[in-house]
């Protein structure tokens, strides 16, 4: 297991370096990479739950909560700072994650997924319908915040938010990897492989899953906050079920077995969407759908699995 992780970690380091350097050459990539990293953070949370064999089809709710926390702060209190937004988004999504988590960790598999979906759809309808407070389907603008009191020009800002996202993404990646290697992380995996044994060992599977769930909600909230700052807007779409589907999609695309899958998947997804939307404006969904089918049918371990498969078949050949 550990031996297999190493080349992937190298790939992750290269990926983070490229994200840091490439946008210096093409300025529109700054936003693209910032988005990839922010979404990768959210998908990390999905990957985490996948370790326990659970799929949340409502994780966009935490994404939306993170985004709307900044939006509400800007709308009702005003001012704001990237750091403040992140702290607030982190807190609100953690609190929500804990509340929702207390209910959902009692269930597994499809029931787990369903209940998550149900909660997220309630949130979505509230964001849609509470027009006087949320501005309905149009969403709330998030004014460009400063960082630690500094105010930036738009040109600088896109790099500031890129590097903030990069820093958080790298930290989250490292943290999640450490967590998965820790005893708690192994217990989380045990929920998938043999939950009963976990219980026999005197561990509460619910508690183990709850911890994982709250962490993944926190990651969702942080990602949502970043995306809201990058896009300068929060809309109910952030919490719609297709968004949740997209996150699971990205996790499977990248490969759910390893934390780096989140970023590999996000990079692939945003890249295809960005360029397909640019050149084939009316068929980007089609292209993404076909890519997903091919991945599922022929590379079930996702993009990062491709490499392993290639190596294994090479070895066998030798």
């Amino acid at each position: 297991m550990t031996r297999r992780i190493k080349p992937i970690t190298t790939a992750a380091v290269i990926f983070f370096l490229v994200s840091a350097v490439a946008p210096l050459f093409v300025s529109s990539w700054a936003t693209l990479f910032a988005l990839i990293l922010a979404k990768g953070i959210v998908v990390l949370g999905i990957v985490l739950l996948l370790q326990a064999g659970q799929v949340s089809f409502g994780h966009a709710m935490f994404f939306a909560i993170g985004a709307y926390t900044s939006a509400f702060w800007g709308k009702y209190i005003g001012g704001g700072d990237i750091l403040l937004y992140l702290v607030l988004g982190g807190i609100s999504s953690t609190v929500f994650g804990l509340i929702v988590g207390l209910f959902v960790v009692r269930y597994r598999e499809i029931f787990f997924g369903m209940l998550n979906l149900a909660f997220s759809m309630v949130l979505w309808s509230l964001l849609e319908k509470m027009f006087p407070y949320t501005n309905g389907a149009d969403g709330i603008r998030v004014a460009r915040p400063g960082l630690l009191g500094f105010v930036f020009t738009p040109e600088t800002f896109q790099y500031v938010i890129l590097y903030v996202s990069l820093l958080i993404a790298a930290a989250a990646f490292y943290g999640v990897q450490r967590y998965l290697e820790s005893p708690l992380g192994h217990m989380l995996r045990a929920i998938k492989s043999n939950e009963t044994r976990l219980e026999y060992l005197g561990m509460s599977a619910r508690r183990v899953l709850l911890i994982g769930y709250v962490i993944s909600a926190f990651l969702g909230g942080i990602g949502g906050t970043l995306v809201a700052i990058i896009q300068q807007i929060a809309t109910p779409e952030f919490g719609f079920w297709t968004k949740s589907g997209e996150f699971v999609f990205i996790a499977i695309l990248g490969g759910g077995a390893h934390a780096f899958g989140a970023f590999a998947g996000a990079a692939m997804f945003e890249w295809v969407r960005f360029y397909a939307a640019a050149h084939l404006a009316d068929s980007w969904q089609l292209i993404l759908g076909v890519v997903l089918i091919v991945i599922i049918l022929y590379a079930p371990n996702g993009l990062i699995g491709l490499r392993q498969r290639y190596r294994q078949s090479g070895k066998r050949g030798r």
Partner: peptide, 14 residues
Amino acid sequence: FIDEGAGGEALVSN
């Protein structure tokens, strides 16, 4: 041309 229907993120980045 860029598509407004592609959703907020794609719209702004495009």
